[in-house]
């Protein structure tokens, strides 16, 4: 959700457009990184649920 808001608003938010390309690029990069890390966490959580003992316990 946060990643989606960051990424979409890199293109449509008036404040970011007014501040220029660096502000838009920063929003896009931040959103993309949050998305990648959130997907990695979700994937890891699914692995733990699917494979008992995947968490090294």
């Amino acid at each position: 959700m946060i990643a989606y808001l960051f990424i979409t608003n890199a293109f449509v938010a008036k404040t970011a457009i007014k501040e220029g390309l660096p502000a838009q690029a920063a929003l896009l990069l931040g959103g993309a990184l949050i998305a990648v890390f959130a997907v990695a966490l979700a994937w890891q959580s699914l692995q733990i649920l699917r494979v008992p003992g995947a968490s090294g316990g």
Binding site: I34, F37, L41, Q44, S45, I48, S55, G56
Partner: peptide, 15 residues
């Protein structure tokens, strides 16, 4: 925010 997500990913995998 990235650190918290990564911290959770790493430690959940190492219960």
């Amino acid at each position: 925010t990235l650190k918290v997500l990564d911290h959770l990913r790493y430690t959940l995998a190492r219960w």
